[in-house]
């Protein structure tokens, strides 16, 4: 009996995701990213232990939150970049075209890539939990509920970064261009985020036009924050730290919407741009 188109599509998604998942863990990049994340967060933790030893007492409500943020930042940026590279490399090598000779369409390809990277993130997340658990047992800094909530929320934050990477590679052609674009856009987002923080914390007296200017730029930077996957990460970590249910819900729903829109746009970009080299 003939299967439904949906079941064929599902099979393509599953097959692409499985192959890509295996290839991620055959490569060295994922291990380097995790190693870098663990080294940087270890330095932060060592800074805390040093402060405790120097002062005898340091008040830290969530000592593992900053290391978690660093781990998530490095892991998700790595996966975003990996998504960008893996798609644009396939287009450049021509292997994407060969996939599309068969039962693969834009939607199944995009979803296969997305699921593969999400699965890779879950594995990285588990490794991070093990690392934080070990660090906690060695340093006696507690793994609070906030950290665990942050880890759960990180799935949605990673989804934003991965979708963003997929979208960039869907709209660009060559691998080099998409890597450059990813780095530039990330740098721009980080810059806007820093600018927003600076402007909001600025306490000096300003003349009326400068005050309007400051408010406008802060509003602009804040608005761009809804486009930047980095902002979803910061907001998610803040929500986990505060533990407010409403904030937690917002930080689940908004990344889902963000990812959905970007994945949908990526599918459209594939249709428009085609899959040929």
């Amino acid at each position: 009996m003939a299967q439904s188109p949906f079941s064929y599509q599902l099979n393509s998604i599953k097959t692409i995701a499985r192959r890509e998942f295996t290839s991620i863990f055959y490569g060295i990049g994922v291990y380097l990213a995790l190693a870098l994340a663990f080294v940087v967060s270890s330095l932060i933790i060592m800074g805390y232990t040093g402060a405790v030893m120097d002062a005898g007492l340091v008040v830290l409500p969530d000592p593992m939150m900053s290391p978690l943020y660093i781990i998530l930042l490095i892991s998700t940026v790595y996966l975003g970049l990996s998504a960008t590279v893996s798609i644009s490399r396939e287009r450049e090598r021509g292997t994407m075209e060969v996939l599309f000779y068969g039962p693969v369409d834009g939607a199944s390809y995009v979803m296969g890539k997305y699921i593969e990277h999400m699965a890779a993130f879950i594995v990285m997340g588990v490794a991070s939990l093990v690392f934080l658990g070990l660090a906690s047992s060695i340093t006696r800094f507690s793994l609070t509920g906030g950290v665990l909530k942050g880890l759960v929320l990180s799935i949605f934050m990673a989804s934003c970064m991965i979708s963003f990477g997929i979208f960039l590679s869907a709209v660009t052609g060559k691998m080099r261009n998409s890597i450059l674009l990813f780095i530039l856009v990330m740098a721009a987002f980080a810059g806007f985020s820093a600018l927003e923080g600076y402007l909001l914390s600025f306490q000096g007296d300003l003349s009326a036009p400068l005050e309007y200017g400051r408010t406008f730029v802060a509003w602009l930077a804040h608005s761009i924050g809804w486009v930047s996957p980095l902002s979803y990460l910061s907001r998610g970590i803040d929500a986990a730290r505060i533990g407010d249910v409403r904030q937690l819900l917002i930080n689940i729903i908004s990344p889902v919407l963000y990812s959905g829109i970007l994945l949908w746009l990526s599918m459209i970009a594939f249709e428009r741009k085609g899959v040929r080299r």
Binding site: A2, P5, Y101, G102, P103, V104, D105
Partner: peptide
Amino acid sequence: EDYFGLKRRIGVVS
């Protein structure tokens, strides 16, 4: 009309 059904019935050598 039948993207997946048709694609499964053709083989391509480039």
